[in-house]
Simulated scan of single mutants.
Amino acid sequence: MNSVIETIMNHRSIRKFEKKVLTDEQIRMIVESAQAASTSSFIQAYSIIGVKDPDKKQKLAAIVGNQAYVAENGHFFVFCGDLYRHQVISNLEEKDLSTSLESTEKFMVATIDAALAAQNAVLAAESLGLGACYIGGLRNNLDEVCEILNIPEFVIPLFGIAVGYPAQMPDKKPRLPFEHIYHEDEYQQDEALFKQGLDTYNQTISDYYTKRTNGKRSDTWTGQMANMLEKPKRMYMKDFVKKQGFNQQ
């Protein structure tokens, strides 16, 4: 196993950081690593907002449910799907790009580009001995996030990443069975095999939680997913995405 794969395989979410800020050099290295990610048709449809202002970090922490590690970290990055600069290109090149910019396809490109860049950023941070945690809770109230960060049209904050020096090292959370993720030549749909794999995985996850919480939790993965998905959330998202200019057609 080489060092790159070892870094990938050792990933875990860090939710407690030392009180030590990242240097400007570290921030640049992480962002430039993000920029090295693949991007669809060279469109580079994302932006990264680094949040240093303690007051803004506290406001963002409140939005995500008062998670302390959003305010208390080495640096907080917000990854955005971004076609604003392409709107500027429309004016610069004197061409009507609205149909493309408002399409579902370009909305997907922006979200995929941002996700690819973000994973590069996390791997870079972890290779430097730092820890990271993705923060999807920003989507609890994107109108407020946009106000705090002065977000223009054709930009959507997708998620944050808290990065810093780890003050904890939790056990790795077991992932789904290989056979559930990798399908060869066609999608395998044998429900009996699916259920068999899920039963085994449920026991693995239950054992993980039991050990991690000293017996206070023992829930299964399928139970956890069913309870979560039974209660739809952030159902305003379709309207918000359209308000920002995306996904119109």
Rank of each mutant, 00 (worst) to 15 (best):
A34L: 06
K57G: 11
A117C: 14
F154I: 01
W221Q: 06
K19N: 06
M9W: 00
G215C: 02
A118H: 11
I8C: 08
M29L: 06
A125N: 09
E94H: 12
D171K: 13
H11R: 05
L142H: 07
L198N: 06
E72F: 00
L149M: 04
V88R: 08
H11N: 05
A37Y: 15
N141I: 11
A37T: 12
D55H: 13
E191R: 06
G65V: 01
P232I: 04
V145E: 07
P232R: 04
N2D: 15
Q87D: 13
R15W: 00
V145P: 12
S98L: 11
A124G: 04
D55I: 05
L60W: 07
Y236S: 08
M169P: 00
H11C: 03
L92F: 15
R28V: 02
V122W: 14
Y165C: 05
L198W: 08
G245Q: 15
E72I: 03
K216L: 09
A36H: 13
L97P: 06
E94F: 07
T7G: 01
Q248N: 05
A68W: 04
Q224K: 03
I181E: 12
I8Y: 00
T200V: 08
T220E: 05
P177L: 08
V109R: 05
H180Q: 09
P174E: 07
A45T: 00
S100M: 15
M29S: 07
T220K: 10
N202E: 07
D239N: 10
G245W: 12
I48S: 11
P157V: 10
T23N: 02
Q203S: 14
